Computed example of a mutant assay.
Amino acid sequence: MAEKTSELETALAEAASPSWSRRVRAGRGLASFVDVPEAAEALAGLLLDAEDTAVTRQTAEALARVGTVAAVRLVARAVAEADDNHADWLQTGVRDAVAGPDSVPDLEAVCGQLVRDPEEAVRRGAAEISAWADDAQG
């Protein structure tokens, strides 16, 4: 348990780093802690990283690979809030997860749950992600 706590603390610290590569590492590391409020808050910031879209792309891919409702909900909210540039990189990250050689959870099924979310932004973002996942699969 102490190892997981240390891993979370390290990733949270890296999320605020001026180094884009450390923020990318944070996005990947925090994805498995999406149910922890502090991690979710940091991930939301990394998805819309103001400094480097590589952070956006890698964080979106990591969360799509986790594929839980909580993980995809964060991406959906970011999609709804993103400018065109960030939306392109969020889409690329999701497509990387879906079209890659490693299998990922069924994002379309998770998005199907999220299109009934009480938050309108999440519903819109989930519809976009579902379309991206469908396009990426063929």
Rank of each mutant, 00 (worst) to 15 (best):
L114A: 11
G100H: 06
A126Q: 10
A76P: 14
Q113F: 02
G100V: 06
V104A: 15
A82G: 06
V110R: 04
A70M: 04
A80F: 14
V122G: 09
D134I: 01
R65P: 00
C111G: 11
R116C: 07
V104L: 05
V66I: 05
A133Q: 07
D102Q: 15
R77A: 13
D88I: 04
A126S: 11
A87M: 11
G112I: 00
G67T: 07
A126N: 11
D83L: 01
D135I: 10
A99N: 07
V115F: 00
D102T: 12
V115Y: 00
A76V: 10
D135A: 15
W132P: 09
E81Y: 08
D134M: 04
S130C: 09
E119H: 09
A126I: 03
P101L: 12
L107Q: 05
A76E: 13
A70F: 08
W132D: 07
Q91V: 09
D102Y: 14
V75R: 09
P101C: 04
E120H: 10
A62F: 02
R123T: 14
A80S: 15
V122K: 11
A97K: 05
G125T: 13
I129N: 06
R73F: 03
A99S: 14
Q91A: 13
A121D: 15
D134R: 12
V110W: 06
Q113T: 10
Q91L: 10
L74N: 05
L63G: 06
G100T: 08
G100F: 01
A62S: 08
L74W: 04
V104W: 08
A87C: 08
R124Q: 15
A87D: 10
P101K: 11
G93E: 00
G100L: 04
R123F: 03
E128N: 06
Q113W: 06
D83N: 13
L74K: 09
D135R: 14
A121S: 15
A78K: 09
A133D: 02
R95V: 05
D83K: 01
V98Y: 03
T92E: 02
A70I: 00
R123P: 13
D106A: 11
A71S: 09
D88P: 00
D117I: 01
D84M: 02
R73D: 02
R123E: 14
T68K: 06
V75M: 10
V72W: 06
V66S: 01
Q91P: 03
A82F: 06
R124K: 15
V72A: 09
L63A: 07
V69I: 13
A71D: 02
I129S: 05
A133H: 04
A121I: 02
P118K: 11
R124F: 15
S130Q: 11
A97T: 02
L90A: 09
D135F: 12
W89G: 01
V72Y: 05
V115N: 01
V110Q: 05
V94M: 07
A127M: 09
G100S: 03
L107T: 01
A82T: 08
A97D: 01
D117N: 13
A64K: 04
A82S: 11
A133I: 01
E61Y: 01
H86M: 04
H86E: 08
V110H: 06
V115W: 00
A76C: 13
R116H: 15
D96V: 00
